[in-house]
């Protein structure tokens, strides 16, 4: 699957999005990205490199030795990092949970629309090549 092409196509439909990238959280590589400019591409790539940790959440109510805080985290499906300048929205591909898509927009963009879009893009990943062509 041409991930750069898929990201480029996705960005065309992104509401207020400046960039989008996809990371393989198992290998740790960013496997595709598209952006309005080079700075935005770098921003998306840097954010995508942190996808594995940002989409992990603490596992509560799990047994363990007293005082032990390092129990394994669990995989979350989506995450947000929002400041007054930037919004980064993450979503995990349901069919290929090792893939996480991150969309980047300015801080005054609509967070709900951005996360909804990123989830739709992630939801479209994971089809095999034949499915993608049809």
């Amino acid at each position: 699957m041409n991930m750069d092409g898929a990201m480029e196509q996705a960005l065309r439909g992104g509401p207020d999005a400046l960039a989008i990238a996809c990371a393989d959280v198992c290998s740790g590589f960013v496997i595709g990205a598209s952006a309005r400019g080079e700075a935005e591409r770098e921003a998306a790539t840097n954010a995508a490199a942190c996808a594995a940790q940002l989409c992990a959440t603490p596992r509560l109510d799990s047994p363990g030795d007293a005082g032990q805080l390092d129990d394994e985290d669990q995989l979350g499906t989506a995450a947000l990092v929002v400041s007054s300048r930037w919004i980064h929205a993450y979503a995990r591909a349901a069919k290929r949970p090792e893939l996480v898509v991150v969309g980047v927009a300015r801080g005054d963009a609509n967070v709900a629309l951005l996360i909804d879009w990123v989830k739709r893009v992630a939801g479209g990943l994971g089809f095999d090549e034949r499915e993608a062509k049809t």
Partner: peptide
């Protein structure tokens, strides 16, 4: 990669 005042949220599975 973000500002220091960023809010982080993550869905609880």
């Amino acid at each position: 990669f973000q500002d220091a005042d960023a809010l982080v949220s993550a869905d609880a599975p």
